[in-house]
């Protein structure tokens, strides 16, 4: 039974127009989000990128890492050129004769995977630490926040550089480095939000009901802290992707066996001086589109989720 039918007295407008959909918070959120055409466009682009990342092996025209199909004779062909076997390379080929479009699909998969997973892990770790700081208070809080302050006073790229210099190359290692770089942002956001939420009446009410501390934290407090965390998470995912690309470009991020967009761009560097621009240009464009769309979606999320900014 619909909500409108159950409570006709309280919601006369909805009851009058029986077929009007009930406005749940989620629907309102979706409606607000798509109010902005730019954000809607960015969301669509992001959806396409996520689709590419998920299904890269099935939608790529060729498998760029299958040595049987890659022919060195095809190397450095300009966009739109055809190979001897009749395959068209819409975005050209790279130095080893791989189809650039396919390599980019795989690169997007790696870049997005590394960026999103590191942001997610950092979110969980950062939130736990932030919650501990907010709930313990006193010395623990001061100590944790000092560490956060000190870490945030060093640029992310430097911290990541240091960690990778010690840890070495590898997907797992770059994820560790990105998590260690990012957790502090989440911890700070979480602590700030949790401190505000903690002093609100509903937490007081829950405490009066003698609910367990864990139950209050995870069932009452955490759901109310989620919106700023989503915003920080989106922006940080974009940062993580850019940082991973930069580190891979510098040759200290992902190994050659896991080519991300950054590595593809680095591979094109040596051919650029002979005007073979496409090997670096297109992967960079993909990276840019990815970062811009995530940032725009994050911006819109912030506007929609922040009640103070609402019209």
């Amino acid at each position: 039974m619909s909500e409108a039918a159950r409570q006709p007295a309280q919601v006369p407008a909805v009851a009058a127009a029986d077929k009007v959909r009930v406005e749940t918070p989620f629907r309102r959120f979706v409606g607000d989000f798509f109010d902005s055409k730019v954000a809607a466009g960015a969301f669509a682009v992001l959806a396409v990128i996520i689709f590419i990342a998920l299904f890269a092996p099935w939608i790529s025209p060729t498998n760029p890492y299958d040595l049987a199909t890659v022919d060195v004779m095809d190397s450095r062909l300009p966009p739109g050129a055809e190979s001897f076997t009749g395959t068209t390379f819409w975005l050209g080929t790279d130095g080893a004769g791989r189809d650039l479009l396919s390599a980019m699909f795989y690169g997007i998969r790696t870049s997005l995977g590394v960026g999103v997973s590191s942001a997610a892990i950092a979110l969980v770790i950062g939130c736990c630490i932030g919650l501990i700081a907010a709930y313990s208070g006193g010395r623990v809080d001061t100590l944790i926040m000092r560490v956060v302050d000190i870490q945030l006073s060093f640029p992310a790229i430097l911290v990541a550089l240091v960690l990778l210099a010690i840890l070495g190359k590898g997907v797992d290692k770059i994820i560790i480095a990105l998590v260690l770089v990012q957790w502090a942002y989440y911890a700070r956001t979480m602590r700030g939000t949790a401190l505000v939420e903690r002093s609100k009446e509903y937490v007081e009410a829950a405490t009066c009901l003698a609910l367990g501390r864990n139950r209050i934290i995870f069932r009452h407090l955490l759901p109310n802290c989620i919106s700023p965390l989503i915003v920080v998470g989106t922006i940080q995912a974009a940062h993580a992707i850019a940082l991973e690309a930069t580190l891979s470009f510098l040759g200290i991020g992902l190994p050659i066996t896991e080519p991300s967009l950054g590595l593809l761009i680095a591979n094109g560097f040596e051919y650029m001086l002979s005007e073979k621009y496409w090997i670096s240009f297109f992967p960079g464009l993909a990276l840019l589109v990815m970062i811009v769309s995530i940032n725009l979606v994050g911006d819109q999320l912030r506007d929609v989720l922040n009640p103070r900014l609402q019209k």
Binding site: A245, I265, F269, M272, G284, L288
Partner: peptide, 11 residues
């Protein structure tokens, strides 16, 4: 803000 520094340099 969004442009990757190294790619802009290359371009």
């Amino acid at each position: 803000f969004s442009l990757p520094t190294f790619w802009v340099g290359l371009m």
